[in-house]
Simulated scan of single mutants.
Amino acid sequence: MEMVTRFVYPPPPSILLNGMSAVGLVALAKIGWSEVTGNHLKYSKFAASSTSTAKPQKQPLGSISSRNGMLWLYTPAFLAASASFFVLPSDDLRFLLLKAALALHFFKRVFEVLFIHKYSGGMAVDSAIVISSSYFSSTVLMLYSQNLTLGLTEPSFDMKLAGIVMFVVGIVGNLYHHVLLAKLRSDDGKKEYKIPKGGLFDIIICPHYLFEILVFWSFFLISQTIYSFSFAMGTMFYLIGRSYATRTWYLSKFDDFPKHVKALIPFVF
């Protein structure tokens, strides 16, 4: 335990946070494995797909437009992060950095939905509920967990600066590759897919996921709480599964998909 507390604050006196740290990690890892086995969260290119036949699938609740669905995913978390400046006022630098990082990340996602992404098709309502709830609850719990650290002794290793650097790299890299993806789509709403090119797309098919993983790990480095570690780990597991499924999808749709292009980690996976 002494070694652990050099890097993170001690476990908070909260059954809710400690329980959600474990439950959230397991749930996200399970969803990531479901992506690998073909039971996808139904948005983007997987909006209407599920290739697994291991057991009957539940009937979907319906669908909404991709644009509205994406707004649904990120807006509650953005509002929660923004409200935290007023609901949980504090002059603690670490807490202020976490609030700012969360608010900026989800503001960027809302901005992309409104002004960058191009859409075709829809999003399953049940998938939108799952993802939106995950982002909102994790944001609230990260902030609540940080609030409980106020007044405690800081971890021996201060990783705030590394977290800030990782956050900037992650958010800029994610935005850049989202712009490249948007340029592949026509403006007429026609549903079409092309093999992405440029940036890290030349060596991995999901660089936007790689940089998103960096963003969530930056939240942990800034906050250094057990809950933020748990959620970063769970998000990484989910996006590993999603990137694997994405590469498999491209291989099935494009005969000329370059085999050297990996899913998430250049030259490795």
Rank of each mutant, 00 (worst) to 15 (best):
M3H: 07
V4T: 11
V4D: 00
T5H: 14
T5Q: 12
F7P: 03
V8P: 02
V8S: 09
V8D: 08
Y9G: 04
Y9L: 09
I15T: 14
L17G: 10
N18Y: 04
M20V: 02
S21I: 02
G24K: 06
V26T: 10
L28D: 07
G32M: 06
W33M: 14
W33Y: 15
S34E: 15
T37Q: 12
K42Q: 15
S44N: 15
K45P: 00
A47K: 14
A47D: 11
A47F: 08
T53Q: 11
A54V: 11
K55G: 07
P56I: 00
K58W: 07
P60M: 06
P60K: 00
S63Y: 07
I64E: 04
W72S: 11
F78C: 12
F78W: 13
A80N: 03
A80D: 02
S82E: 12
S82Q: 09
A83P: 01
A83K: 01
F86K: 05
V87R: 00
P89Y: 03
D91I: 10
F95Q: 11
K99C: 13
A101C: 09
L102Q: 05
K108V: 09
K108T: 02
K108C: 08
R109L: 10
E112S: 13
V113Q: 00
G121V: 01
G121P: 04
A124N: 13
I129D: 00
I129E: 00
V130Y: 13
V130S: 06
S132I: 07
S132T: 10
F136P: 02
T139N: 03
Q146R: 03
Q146C: 11
Q146E: 11
T153G: 10
P155Y: 11
F157T: 11
D158R: 14
M159A: 14
L161H: 07
I164R: 06
V165R: 03
M166D: 09
F167Y: 12
V168S: 05
V168P: 01
G170F: 04
I171Y: 02
V172G: 06
G173L: 08
H177N: 14
A182H: 12
L184R: 04
L184Q: 15
S186Y: 00
K190T: 15
K191H: 10
E192P: 04
Y193N: 13
I195Q: 02
I195P: 00
K197E: 13
G198H: 05
G199E: 01
L200H: 07
F201A: 03
C206W: 04
H208K: 07
H208V: 03
I213H: 08
L214M: 15
W217S: 01
S218Q: 09
Q224L: 00
T225V: 05
T225A: 06
Y227D: 01
Y227C: 07
Y227R: 04
A232H: 02
T235L: 12
T235C: 13
L239S: 06
A245C: 07
A245P: 06
T246H: 02
R247L: 09
L251D: 08
K253Q: 15
D255I: 12
D256P: 12
F257N: 05
P258G: 00
H260R: 11
K262P: 07
I265G: 00
F267S: 08
